[in-house]
Design a protein around this nucleic acid. Structure first.
Lengths: 157, 157
DNA sequence: TTTATCGCAGACCATTTTAGTCTGTAATCA
DNA sequence: TGATTACAGACTAAAATGGTCTGCGATAAA
């Protein structure tokens, strides 16, 4: 729960690679899949969705492949997420998925949860795939809880 | 994806109700389930997990039920989440779930994603079930993206 | 103009997660 | 002692996810 899907992981890896490639450089599915040990058919579908969403440009030909369609700075993690998986909502009643929520009438916690959700979405929107590929030290404050809040969180791996 | 499970929803609804009840007041599973149209067996299991995690106190007897074991202010959404569903991680390699990540060797986006995750966890930890039950206007800034960032996000319901 | 290389499209299946059901046990109090 | 509560876990159903298979279309180089 609260977990990114593999498809999103794959999309982020691929986009990060493309962002680091030469300006307008072309990468193809087979190569990327091989590099990251991703099933090529899966990655192919993911790339097609990114293409349909206008984040990348396809070149259907020998020596073809994909290139970024918009600058890496303008491709947010949220955009990738929505492109690959559709609307995001930590509560079903907020993303159009659940039209028949049984708790709707009595629910008195929706508003705060939606605000929480907005914060998460804001972070996802604020983080671009350009920043994704940079070293931690280079990341801006928004991606770094410790600098924003003084209290870093430590987790067990 | 990135969605809270129903069990977590149920737990939050129940805890919110208990937080609003009298100090030390006792609520039983049947009543809560009826109020929110939740299958009682499901809610029962959720409550048992909350009890095992020390968030609530059980009273196994007629007119018994559950009461908060620690103040509502100290019960964070993150605590509830972990109690009900176990460790949280937006990427599998960070919560101990995926020991055999195929991308591990080549992955160059893990560090920023983990920082993103830390931010999300921080928000989940910062929001208590006490605040969950309060009116939006009363919520502290941390739960309100618009006040923190100037730009509210709007979604379709 | 043929052909290899690429993306496009969608049906299909397997696995995992989530949600919910069923059955029975144990504790407590009136 | 029996009604009422929580405790425990096996079990099934449904949904989401991950992955496979097959065939088609576009392009550019040979």
């Amino acid at each position: 729960m609260l977990k990114l899907t593999k498809k999103v992981d794959y999309a982020l890896l691929a986009l990060n690679l493309m962002a680091k490639a030469e300006e307008g450089g072309i990468s193809n599915v087979r190569d990327i899949a091989a590099l990251y040990s991703i099933p090529p058919e899966i990655l192919a579908k993911v790339m097609q969705k990114l293409s349909k969403s206008g984040l990348i440009q396809s070149h259907s030909a020998p020596k073809g492949g994909y290139s970024l369609k918009i600058p890496a700075e303008e491709i947010s993690v949220l955009k990738v997420l929505v492109a690959v998986e559709g609307p995001v909502g930590i509560v079903s009643c907020s993303d159009g998925t659940d039209k028949t929520c049984q708790q709707r009438g009595q629910c008195d916690i929706r508003s705060p949860l939606e605000k929480l959700q907005n914060n998460i979405l804001w972070f996802l929107e604020a983080l671009s795939i350009r920043e994704l590929g940079q070293e931690p030290a280079v990341l801006k404050g928004v991606t770094d809880g410790s600098s924003l809040f003084g209290q870093p969180l430590h987790h067990k791996g």
